[in-house]
Design a protein around this nucleic acid. Structure first.
Length: 596
RNA sequence: GCCCCUAUAGUUCAACGGAUAGAACGAAAGUUUCCUAAACUUUAAAUCCAAGUUCGAUUCUUGGUGGGGGUACCA
């Protein structure tokens, strides 16, 4: 793949040296795509160089344009508007680009460099006390898409999941099941395991609130009531018993977690998500505790008079942080310390990415500081928190305990149902049942994934359950439909587009050219998506490409084009478009149908 | 209180410091003897406020205002 921008930049530096004896850094050469309303392919704003030339922007642009045209044979012409130098490339180089691109199955990808250490990426990281909701969906889709994007950029990826399978939150579900559960199981109730366990988490919270209220009525302060509610004390006792290895508690814990895993498995399958390595907090928290003790021995941590172990990060601009409770049980960050050390040892990754919501920004600051500054692990500087925004409802934040969540399974089912209904409404009858179900799935899940991934990860996003996710406009089905139309076109053409001869066409029409130049942008878009860990760039790219193609399709004949060279050119252009769409969307985990 | 993030059409989202801020939904009006109308075309509609840096600021800096998050012996 040739990068015209690079060549133009290099040539521009030479020109500036020859014309004005000036040494200019590549940074000040800002080659951009020419805007649609002007003639040209690439544009160089020359304002930064008028100081060197001591001439007007127009004159400066003229001099640079003339010199560039002489230097670069692929520049056919140029024009100047104000201080903008617009360069047009030759038709032939664009035709060559199409020819090479359409035949290159790896177009846009960077070939793998096997020597590199893997990039480790943690995502999903569920708690086992409740089912997955829309917030987790964003996390999973983001982690999966980022993994794919990094792979396409030539890096090895290890997808890891960290299951928070122990802790006070699970004890709450367990306790509620013991108290109110009547020995219910997924089998006896027919409920999905994670849903059943989630039910008890809510039951716990209900009882907890009742007890708090009673205590307040007895004259306790709200704060004391929250700390002294009997059911909470029981849960804390249960956690201590769990950490001591109490047989009955461990048995119940194993059973209930198993139910949850079976439920999660279904959800992951539906989302099309897999992992290479699953860590369980129950397997790493002891290592975490050891690390805390080592830190204590090395005096980088200290024991508070109340018995808890803490770290002082005031010098690092943060605060004190508790690492071990006064009763000796571990907290959230304890296991994260252990897990991080274990991972570093197992994989020696070149980078450790954590896909975790922005509500935990502070937590990751602290984690990194402890590992790097306090414990002097050099690899800890390669920890990167991919912090994404919350999914909000019109009523505000989702809260599991209060039941204001959008359940992941329900939402997927609903999306598939709507897609199926829409397909029928549109009178698409040439599908058998199996095909119809497959298509509805592709569309429904695709729409959901696209909806979540088209938004810049770091921004909060809003989901309105009243309005189901759109299937029109800037959506996956819009892109899928265009792909299906192209496939139909190619089927009818009855030729192998890859084997078509080189075309000689006099001019590339405007609409054709627009698509071509967008296809040219794909590799740079992919690179940017990888370096910014931002899948939304690919979503927006695919959308823009489809907009342009639909405009083209609307009023440009392809099969009916009588000029054979032009017809072949357009078939290849269409085939290349379909192929790039598949690539971009596949990196988002979205499949495209050949018929819809 | 302190810290971080954020602010763009009625709504949901775009825009490496570059030209006339771009889409979608919603609203209004159109397009099918022609390769799939889940499409296309047209109209109305926005940079929170105030300074600063710059040839040029939605973008960078400072101050203010609004929204979100964090600051737990929760995760």
């Amino acid at each position: 793949m040739m990068y015209f921008e690079t060549k133009i930049t290099e040539a521009s530096i030479e020109c500036l040296k020859e014309l004005y004896s000036a040494d200019v850094s590549p940074d000040s050469i800002n080659i951009q795509k020419t805007k649609k309303e002007f003639t040209g392919d690439f544009t160089l704003p020359v304002f930064p160089f008028v100081k060197l030339s001591r001439k007007s922007p127009e004159q400066t642009a003229e001099e640079i344009g003339k010199a560039l045209k002489e230097k670069l044979d692929f520049i056919e012409s140029y024009n100047i508007i104000k201080g903008f130098l617009n360069l047009s490339l030759s038709h032939q180089i664009w035709i060559d680009f199409l020819h090479k691109g359409v035949q290159n199955p790896d177009y846009g990808n960077t070939s793998a460099t096997s020597a590199n250490q893997p990039i480790l990426i943690e995502f999903s990281s569920p708690n086992t006390n409740k089912p997955l909701h829309l917030g987790h969906v964003r996390n999973n889709l983001l982690g999966d898409a980022v993994s794919r994007i990094i792979e396409a950029n030539g890096n090895k990826v290890v997808r890891v999941n960290l299951v928070n399978d122990r802790g006070i939150h699970i004890c709450k579900s367990m306790l509620a099941h013991q108290k109110f559960g009547k020995d219910e199981t997924p089998q006896s109730t027919g409920m999905k395991g994670d849903k059943l366990v989630g039910k008890y988490y809510v039951a716990f919270d209900k009882q907890y609130k009742t007890e708090i209220e009673e205590l307040i009525n007895q004259g306790k302060s709200k704060e004391d009531a929250e700390k002294q509610a009997p059911i909470l004390l029981e849960a804390q006792q249960m956690l201590r018993l769990w950490e001591e290895g109490d047989k009955d508690i461990r048995k119940l814990w194993q059973n209930m977690n198993q139910w949850v895993y079976e439920g999660f498995e279904q959800t992951y399958n539906n989302l099309g998500i897999t992992f290479d390595r699953v860590y369980y907090e129950s397997e790493t928290y002891l290592l975490g505790k050891e690390i805390v003790k080592e830190g204590l021995a090395k005096k980088v941590f200290y024991q508070h008079p109340d018995g808890s172990i803490r770290v002082d990060l005031k010098e690092e601009g943060l605060d004190e942080k508790i690492l071990l409770r006064s009763d000796g049980t571990s907290v959230y960050i304890t296991q994260d310390l252990g897990t991080a050390v274990l991972r570093a040892k197992e994989y020696h990754p070149q980078q450790m990415i954590y896909v975790v919501g922005n509500e935990q920004n502070y937590h990751f600051d602290v984690l990194k500081r402890i590992l790097y500054d306090k414990l002097s692990y050099d690899w800890a500087k390669r920890i990167y928190h991919l912090s994404y925004g919350m999914v909000e409802l019109p009523s505000g934040k989702m809260k599991s305990r209060e039941g204001t969540v959008v359940d992941a399974d329900d939402l997927m089912d609903e999306m598939i149902r709507i897609a199926k209904q829409k397909t029928k409404e549109l009178g698409k009858n040439d599908f058998n049942d199996e095909e119809l179900n497959g298509l509805a799935r592709m569309i429904g899940i695709g729409a959901l994934k696209y909806f979540m991934l088209k938004v810049d990860p770091k921004k909060n996003m809003l989901f309105n359950p009243e309005e189901s996710i759109d299937l029109n406009g800037n959506t996956a089905p819009f892109i899928q439909y265009t792909h299906a139309r192209i496939c139909s076109l190619l089927r009818k053409a009855g030729v192998n587009t890859l084997e078509l001869p080189t075309h000689h066409i006099d001019v590339i029409p405007e609409a054709d050219k627009e698509i071509l130049s967008m296809l040219y942008e794909y590799p740079a878009t992919l690179k940017q998506a990888a370096s910014e860990l931002n899948p939304s760039l690919l979503a927006n790219f695919a959308y823009e490409l489809v907009k342009a193609y639909n405009r083209f399709y609307q009023d440009t004949p392809v099969l009916k084009e009588t000029n054979e060279n032009l017809r072949h050119f357009r078939l290849q252009l269409s085939a290349f478009t379909a192929s790039v769409l598949r690539k971009a969307m596949n990196l988002l985990g979205i499949d495209l149908p050949e018929k819809m």
